[in-house]
Design a protein around this nucleic acid. Structure first.
Lengths: 207, 207, 207, 207
DNA sequence: AATGAATGAGGCTTCATTCAT
DNA sequence: TATGAATGAAGCCTCATTCAT
């Protein structure tokens, strides 16, 4: 009703706004990833190339922005982990999951910590369960088909996996061995920890 | 026994002051552990039962207090890990190390993170190297005597170990399984990851 | 007249901000002048009609503000003294210098003290030398042309002049005799102290 | 009653206390003179070699101590100025007064400022009038006997004199010329400013 | 009476959020 | 709608004063 004769302008504005929205999210990911969750709003706005007022038009508060990012990180993570976990062979699936998580960590840095650490229950009830379920399914499948050892302590295995991606160690590993090297090292380590003793030891070798 | 002939009166005030010093340190450990490193000075002072001025008489600044605690945590950790690492059998030693670290984490919470995370280089140069060395020595010994597998990726193993104690997962594990249960689960997991294939699988079982 | 073709809208915010900047400076001059250099930031902000945060947007710290004011006072003083010292006749020039300094003191109060007292070497190296040079030039000129006595102790004369404007006595004199009366009394006094004996005694009389 | 058999001890304690009293006053003079009136209580107590508690037993508050010192400075100053002003010849008397004031300034530093600046009306009503009266009497006497010029602006002359001792310039002069040189320079300057034109110009020369 | 550790009000400064332009 | 200047609550720290020893 209000934009009868200028759909193009109106659409353009929306496009601008949407672009700003994305730029703010990207900037926030970047800044939170590098500076940690205490980063200042001003730095995010600057990096996004907008004023703080604009940032607040898109997100109602600092916590609102953080929440949006954490949920987004969580969603992204969950989707990629689920996809990776679908890989046929359980050992390959675990490797794929670890590669995916390494990549997410590279992108989301400190945000991964919260998304993965099981502290987001107040943001998304069952958020952590969803992630856990993805891992659990994969591990159970591997145990069932004899790929993983029968006495594997699945919650402990998941805790260890989450720890590596939550502790900041990945950045160090990536810095020392590069992205592929870090993912390979992590994969090998965890495969050793969970492969059945009878399994071909070669399976713990990375590609 | 320690001060057999100590005069009681002249030194009493100092004893009070020393007691306050300890109470402040304890309160700070507690509050930093629970609230994280952003905790407020006032809360620490309150919990110690002293005024902020008293806290500042004992520690020159917020950062000074934090630094003291982190160094103390680091020292405590280092000492206990070295002691545990001395255990004869390499597998037993690894278990002892993990039990010790679990205990330190329980006491120092969030402070363990910094002390263990390799971010204290500006506080104590080579601080992280000292910790790493303690782990490395133990693992090399185990590899040398055939307890651990020959192809063990020692840096990765250490990274994973540090991660578990740095990520906050330990509190969750302790909450779910109790102190002994958590330490046992962690031990079992890491032993599985590093024991030689020929080793008695039963060794990965906790006591 | 000053900005004939200035666009009005785009620059308006800046004009507001600049106005605040000036209001803060003016308020700070006022408050420091009356309350001394220990005045509280809050009082300055209040008097400027802004919040403390705004004050800190314009000046990075209490000392930054003070520094800016002292340098400004010094610059103002130096410029006006130099201009007055240019007056043809040396006796008239001294009178003009004293009138100018009286006016500066009226405006800057306690700030004049620091600007004139030779304590700003860390803010502006040679700051005091610049002021001294302005006085010295004038006095030497008067001695050279026979207006001032040949044995005039120039450093002592300058010290006495600076003292009067540095000691707070000027405010009292102004209060008692008004601005013109105070300047005249100071001028007469110092002319008596430096005029050559042969000089027409009437020259020490003010206008 | 309580000290029947040990008058010596009792007297000794009083002597100790009195000694402390003096040491605190001396330390306070020293510290206030050097650091200015914002000096910290702790520094004074340290320099006096007593605890802050002892300082507070002798002076009810920081302001109480400051008040005592200012009044003491004022009394000392007044007494010495009066004595000096009694000198027969008015010119000699002015010189004596200036020497005395230089000496007081050397001893009391920043305290002289307040004692001389006429800001102590709330501490001692008419305090400033007493000082002014001492100067005024001397100057009137000189004018009456023809030593000083008839048109001397006595309040202005006094203001200038007070200024020199109030502005901190004396320390600089003393630093550059030594104690005797500074006093001589100040004397010469002020004598030039007030001596009668017919007077022997040589009288403005210092000893 | 002397000591100095303890106290806490009050100052300076930061930064999330608001709002006039 | 975008901007960024303005705001002020809240945290850190200092130091005059009190008080237990």
């Amino acid at each position: 009703m209000e934009e009868p004769a200028a759909p193009e302008t109106a659409r353009h504005e929306r496009a601008d706004s949407a672009a700003n929205h994305e730029r703010i999210l990207a900037a926030a990911r970047d800044v939170f990833a590098r500076r940690g969750l205490d980063a200042e709003i001003k730095e995010i706005a600057d990096r996004a190339g907008v004023g703080v007022g604009t940032l607040y038009r898109h997100f109602d508060s600092r916590d609102g922005l953080l929440r949006a990012l954490i949920l987004q990180t969580h969603d992204d993570l969950l989707q990629r982990l689920r996809a990776a976990a679908d890989t046929q062979d359980a050992a390959d699936a675990l490797r794929a999951v670890i590669h995916a998580a390494t990549d997410v960590y590279r992108q989301f840095g400190a945000l991964t910590e919260v998304a993965l650490a099981g502290r987001l229950d107040h943001l998304r009830p069952d958020g952590h369960e969803e992630l856990t379920a993805a891992f659990t399914g994969l591990l159970r499948r591997g145990v069932a088909d004899g790929t993983f050892r029968a006495d594997l302590d699945i919650p402990m295995m998941i805790a260890a996996l989450e720890s590596v991606f939550t502790s900041g160690k990945v950045v160090r590993l990536v810095a020392e061995r590069g992205y592929a090297g870090a993912a390979a090292a992590i994969s090998d380590f965890f495969l050793h920890a969970c492969l059945a003793a009878s399994a071909d030891p070669g399976r713990a070798r990375s590609t």
